[in-house]
Design a protein around this nucleic acid. Structure first.
Lengths: 209, 209
DNA sequence: GTCTATACCCCGATAGAC
DNA sequence: GTCTATCGGGGTATAGAC
């Protein structure tokens, strides 16, 4: 019986998140003040601090699921033996993750790197976590040009989303193009050689985006 | 006779720029306060405002030459007839520009997109200006995947610089790899067909980085 | 448990004295 | 050319009303 006339705390919290994401995306994180968020909801600044520790905490709450998903991917990578097929696997999973999280949040994350960079919920920052993925798929013995190709492949997903701004294309089209480009950069699929029996079903791992 | 014991205004201004660039790069633009900059130079906040209109203006002064160079490139592009060889030309010039400006400033620009984005010295913002370049080399009639390849090619410089963090590679190596990657993404060089007599000497246009 | 009122200190920026 | 003083507004903390 909490859902009628009176406003439940859950509801308010969700509304704050909604307004905050909108404003952060439209005008940027720094350019959006706590007062501005509060005014849109007809509450006071202090009320925000009942629901969230601080301004950063709102962002953290918005990216909570996503950060956890990235952490899962990192943990998964840590358990994998290095091999020629690993980069493709990681790229596939990374693309799936990106489209699942939503292009909207991904764009926000890119345009506000400086905010995400400072968050320290687990591990280091969002930025350093991506570095872990990059390092995991980089063969330290390969020539620099080759190392860069592999790393750029993973980055190309973000780049396609960025470069796609202003193009007449749906988010799905962009995501598909990003995957195609990333895989192309990795070169022809390494045949499962001998011992490594990993390269089977590719992407569809759990979420099914 | 202004260079001895007394401190000239020119000197102070340069010292401010030096300290500001260091702090901005180390801890970010927003995380660096005017007071902090002033304290390092043993002057007060207000003194900074004698040399610079505001905080943004310090950044503008740092990027002045570079912004002008980008503007020149945009103007040049605007005068070119669209053609299959144009993307390669633009990429070559963009890579040359990037290495000339210095990898340091380029990294700062990427990590602080949100600042550059709001600058309005001429035209719109630094971000929108890059969009002009992207649009200039994009063939609106090509399939989306093809359009993205072209646009990502131009972005490859930024990607390599980003992906190269943590790699044992010199800035020159990264720049070279970026150019190679960009040209590869653009596909085989379009033969000069018939009428377009532009694709001659490629990059070396003025600066000679 | 939910929110308001109020106060704190730092920030960027300006005006005016020296 | 540099300082002091001051302004409005930002994020944050807390006391207390309901």
């Amino acid at each position: 019986m909490t859902g009628a006339g009176r406003r439940s705390g859950q509801d308010t919290k969700a509304r704050i998140q909604e307004v905050a994401l909108t404003l952060f995306t439209e005008q940027g994180y720094e350019a959006t003040s706590m007062r501005e968020i509060a005014e849109r909801l007809h509450i006071t600044k202090a009320a925000l601090y009942y629901h969230f520790k601080n301004k950063e905490d709102i962002v953290v709450s918005l990216f909570g699921r996503q950060m956890a998903a990235v952490d899962d991917l990192i943990d998964w990578v840590a358990d994998q033996p290095p091999g020629p097929g690993l980069p493709r696997e990681v790229v596939e999973r990374w693309v799936a993750l990106s489209s699942e999280l939503g292009v909207r949040l991904f764009r926000f994350a890119m345009a506000n790197q400086h905010v995400l960079r400072e968050l320290k919920p687990r591990r280091e920052g969002a930025f350093e976590r991506f570095q872990v993925l990059l390092d995991a798929i980089t063969d330290p013995d390969a020539p620099v040009a080759e190392q860069l190709r592999t790393r750029v492949a993973l980055l190309s997903v973000q780049m396609c989303l960025m470069a796609g701004r202003g193009l007449e294309a749906t988010d799905d089209e962009l995501t598909d193009a990003a995957r195609a480009l990333a895989l192309e950069l990795l070169g022809p699929p390494a045949r499962p050689a001998a011992g490594t029996g990993a390269g089977a079903g590719a992407a569809g791992t759990g979420t099914g985006a």
